[in-house]
């Protein structure tokens, strides 16, 4: 197969993939964003075949949802499968298109799970813990602490995330329908475990730094609040309700004359 994923085409697809969620709706979620990303490729693959272009544009209006960073893999894969369908004989084409639709739907669902665990469940909390540690370590110089916390967060998150989003476009295109098989050898689970363990360690360091930052009489009640918030989170109570409950507890303490 000729390598139609030229650097300029990859840049176009990548630029458009940043707007994947620009049209997010409850009905079909990222479907319009996906169609928007793929549009230059569709025009290139099916050039001068107006009816097929129309059909290709319409088939990507269907429901689509995945983790936005992992969508690059699906976009790359769909590019390869669209190219194969465009190059197939009239007899083979319907089967290839059906396979494309099935693979797109299945990989989107599978990759959403991996991406949510990796980026939302591990990388984002890790970056937050890292930035918090920086902020607490530099708390005597608020200006530096603010700049450092924001900078560290953005670099720690975007360096791997942007690189992976760019790389996934190419990998999806090369792996085609082998994405599931290839991802088995991908060290994603190890990375998730490492990020969670490092993030937890950083959160513990932040806790120690916070203990040093507050006056001694406030520490026991602070630790009690930490344990209560952890237990309530385990019971699936939202953080905002926990905050409201703390205000309620404060009011009761006021009524009881403890404050």
């Amino acid at each position: 197969m000729s390598d139609a994923m030229t650097p300029s085409m990859q840049r176009r697809l990548f630029g458009r993939s940043l707007l994947l969620q620009a049209f997010w709706s409850f009905e079909r979620m990222q479907s319009l964003g996906f169609a928007f990303c793929l549009d230059p490729w569709i025009a290139r693959c099916w050039s001068s075949r107006d009816d097929e272009i129309r059909e290709a544009r319409l088939r990507h209006q269907e429901y689509f949802n995945t983790q936005p960073y992992m969508a690059s893999l699906v976009i790359g894969m769909v590019c390869a499968l669209e190219e194969a369908a465009a190059g197939a004989t009239d007899a083979d084409r319907p089967a290839k298109i059906e396979r494309l639709k099935a693979l797109k739907s299945a990989s989107a669902a599978a990759l959403a799970g991996v991406g949510d665990a990796m980026f939302w469940g591990a990388l984002r909390p890790f970056c937050a813990a890292l930035a918090l540690t920086c902020a607490l370590a530099l708390r005597q110089q608020p200006g530096k602490a603010a700049a450092c916390a924001a900078g560290v967060y953005l670099i720690a998150h975007n360096a791997p995330a942007l690189w992976l989003r760019w790389r996934f476009l190419r990998l999806g295109y090369e792996w085609k329908d082998q994405i599931a098989v290839r991802l088995k050898s991908w060290p994603g689970q190890k990375a998730i475990r490492a990020l969670r363990a490092s993030g937890l360690a950083l959160a513990l360091v932040s806790g120690v730094l916070l203990l040093g930052a507050v006056p001694a009489p406030q520490r026991p009640i602070g630790l009690l609040a930490l344990v209560a918030a952890l237990l309530l989170s385990l019971a699936r109570v939202s953080a905002y309700r926990i905050y409201a409950a703390a205000a309620g507890a404060g009011y009761l303490a006021y009524l009881a004359g403890w404050m």
């Binding site: 993030g199 959160a203 806790g207 930490l226 344990v227 209560a228 918030a229 953080a239 926990i242």
Partner: peptide, 13 residues
């Protein structure tokens, strides 16, 4: 608030 936030962070990990 910071303590409750840390509690939520421990849960998130």
């Amino acid at each position: 608030a910071p303590w409750m936030g840390l509690g939520v962070a421990f849960y998130a990990f």
